[in-house]
């Protein structure tokens, strides 16, 4: 029997250079975490795109619902006072 049909899906995150965040780059199938790392190396870092890889089983990720985008993010829209540019500071005042 070809049991590769049950190989789970992993999401791959790559750190491009030391000091940067890991960033989502795509997904792949693998038999286990170790193979997922090895495949991620071959698939997403063939041209020195990274110095570190995370793999996470896709089913372990909980995502926000696109249908709830507005209720989740809309409330922040009218709170412009949260941004520094909201405040007008006289030119005479320095280093602020």
């Amino acid at each position: 029997m070809d049991n590769t049909r049950h190989w789970p899906l992993y999401e791959v995150f790559v750190r491009a250079r030391g000091g940067l965040d890991h960033k989502h780059v795509g997904s792949l199938h693998a038999a286990d975490e170790r193979m997922a790392i090895e495949h991620a190396r071959d698939l997403y870092t063939r041209r020195q795109e990274g110095v570190s890889i995370w793999v996470v089983p896709s089913k372990a990720i909980t995502a926000s619902d696109p249908g709830e985008t507005e209720s989740l993010f809309e409330p922040a829209r009218d709170k412009i006072y949260r941004h520094p540019t909201f405040y007008e500071i006289p030119d005479e005042v320095k280093t602020l």
Partner: peptide, 16 residues
């Protein structure tokens, strides 16, 4: 390539 995939699955299961 079937045997390679099967071996990888078996290995993963053993490790688990």
């Amino acid at each position: 390539g079937a045997w390679v995939r099967e071996a990888a699955s078996a290995h993963a299961e053993k490790q688990r």
